[in-house]
Nucleic acid binder design. Structure first.
Length: 519
RNA sequence: GCGGCCGUGGUCCAGCCUGGUCUAUGACACAGCCUUGCCAAGGCUGUAACGCGGGUUCGAAUCCCGCCGGCCGCACCA
């Protein structure tokens, strides 16, 4: 058995079908992971929560655009030119190396960001050779981290797998702004896969070559960066790690409310502050504890080519330290201007309020889905004495309820199966399990975070009641089968307290108040 | 991509140095049956592995090479 907590978590995740290495029978490929049956359910629930915040609450428009994009789009977005590393190939042994690495190893100097021509001179002047075989280095070439492909037969039409879903939104801007009917700000979201051909992926599910992202582009008038519901978020406390403090090597966090952050100009505008607050709420909603959340301002050198200010939402993990789970970037008019220039189309918008044309600016809250999923698993993982269980939020648990017979005889298995089928028909994710002992079945359910277990026992056969066991407290209540679905539903939605949802187990008769079929 | 370590059933591991009774050890997990009146109990039975490819050898889990993958450090992470 593995010893560390994170090893045991990963063991559980693999064993029980949350996360698997992809293409395993062929030895696997780095940077790719499969979600197993439980992982898929969990991932979908996380996405569902995100939709609740951004599509329902914020009223943003969700679109779904292709993963393969023609070259022009990514030229305009700057990805073809900026999403790159300068590489050099050894003329003798043929290995490709990052120029900046070779140069640093050989000369101790950092040439990051140096123009291509100068790099070649630099290599020449310092006689930098291949660190593997000592061979002469060839021409500098760019390694673009996008996966390249061709569209249609032949190789004339170049395409790329999108590195972010955002560009699919920007290129639809004209149709979207018409859909928004002149109202600003408005937001558009897209949930989908993005692709980045990492040179060397590491850290399991944290650095993937193909991953799911949920991105929101909030379009606004740069002269009016207000959020209509800002007061709802104004008092949310944000823990900020300012760029200035990072540059000075200070670990200090600044705690301010969203409102203060704007007033003190720690954050560029009200919209940014609002979405920082919303991001915090989303993470809390996933069950990440408040103390494990912070916002780190990217320093100038860390920021993407399109960004004027970026905040990373980070979650503290045992295994990987602080993990970036979302990036909130002030993209200004970079993308719309770029696409306007490259396409020749007018991408301004007529503001119904201001009665004038506006070139929108963009604040982009962009979330990974895979990383938060890992964080959720790690924070939910709990060990108590001999018990291992996932303290997942009820609304995130892949399985809602397990249904077991107490014993495998006297018609209990049949009855349990019948109850399980009924719950499934009512729309609950219910699973039946009758192998091993009752204790083992509870343990199996605990391990994957199933919040409730229903047990059919002898009393069920007499009075049609079953017990419901609570995952976290291991206590039980007894309810009528007829009202079971309603009780479970209310429990799962946190509408009633467990102890008040049914009769105490051990009571000789079900008290009157619980003798009704629908609570 | 570099340097170091590593890769045996679902999981964790023994065996490797010192090739051969290895038709591969153990534990846990899983499936079936028995048992079982509520928290991983017990009994029996069963499924199941030497990362991939090449080489050395009469013979390779074991020695050598390449590839793939993993972990740690460096770098990268728009």
């Amino acid at each position: 058995m593995p010893s560390g907590k994170s090893e045991k978590l990963m063991d559980l995740a693999k064993r029980r079908g949350f996360i698997w290495p992809s293409f395993e029978i062929y030895g696997g490929v780095g940077g790719f992971y499969d979600f197993g049956p439980l992982g898929s359910l969990l991932k979908n629930k996380i996405i569902q929560k995100w939709r609740e915040h951004y599509v329902l609450e914020e009223g943003f428009f969700e679109i779904d655009s292709p993963s393969v994009m023609p070259e022009e789009v990514l030229k305009a977005s700057g990805h073809v030119d900026h999403f790159i590393d300068a590489m050099v190939e050894c003329q003798k042994c043929g290995t490709a190396l990052r120029v900046a690495d070779v140069a640093r190893e050989a000369t101790g100097r950092d040439i990051e960001g140096m123009p291509k021509g100068e790099i070649e001179q630099f290599i020449e002047r310092h006689k930098v050779r291949c660190p593997d075989c000592g061979g002469v280095l060839g021409k500098i070439f760019d390694f673009n981290a996008m996966f390249r492909t061709t569209i249609g037969p032949g190789s004339r039409k170049v395409g790329y797998l999108r590195p972010e879903t955002a560009q699919g939104i920007f290129v639809d801007f004209n149709r979207l702004q018409r859909y928004a009917r002149g109202r600003l700000p408005f937001g558009v979201v897209q949930i989908g896969r993005g692709y980045r051909n990492e040179i060397s992926p590491r850290q399991g599910i944290i650095r993937l070559r193909e991953f799911t992202m949920a991105e929101a582009e909030v379009f606004f008038d740069p002269e009016d960066p207000h959020h209509p519901k800002f007061k709802d978020a104004a008092n949310e406390v944000l823990r900020l790690w300012l760029a200035g403090d990072q540059e000075k090597g200070k670990e200090r966090l600044t705690e301010v409310t969203a409102e203060q952050a704007v007033k003190k100009k720690l954050v560029c505008n009200e919209l940014m502050a609002y979405y920082l607050a919303l991001t915090k709420r989303f993470l809390l909603d996933l069950g990440i504890p408040e103390g494990a959340i912070r916002f780190r301002e990217q320093t100038k050198g860390q920021r993407a080519h399109y960004s004027a200010e970026t905040w990373d939402a980070e979650v503290s993990t045992e295994r990987f330290g602080w993990v970036e789970v979302a990036g909130l970037a002030y993209r200004t008019d970079y993308d719309l201007s770029g696409h306007a220039k490259f396409s020749g189309k007018d991408l301004t918008m007529f503001s119904a309020d201001k009665k004038r044309k506006v070139l929108c600016h963009v604040v982009e809250p962009s979330y990974g889905i895979d990383r938060p999923l890992y964080c959720v698993l790690e924070h939910a993982y709990a060990e108590e004495k001999k018990r291992t269980y996932m303290r997942l939020k009820k609304s995130l648990a892949p399985i809602d309820v397990g249904v077991f017979p107490l014993l495998n005889r006297d018609g209990m298995p049949e009855k349990a199966r019948e109850v399980c089928e009924k719950l499934k028909r009512e729309g609950l994710m219910a699973v039946h399990d009758n192998s091993g002992s009752i204790g083992r079945r509870y343990a199996r359910a605990d391990e994957v975070g199933t919040p409730y277990c229903v047990t059919v026992d002898h009393k069920t056969l007499e009075d049609d009641t079953v017990t419901i066991r609570d995952r976290d407290t291991m206590t039980q209540i007894r309810v009528l089968v007829g009202g079971l679905h309603g009780v479970l539903r209310s429990l799962l939605r946190d509408e009633i307290k467990f102890g008040e949802a049914g009769a105490q187990v051990g009571a000789k008769r079900l008290p009157e108040e619980f003798r009704r079929d629908t609570p």
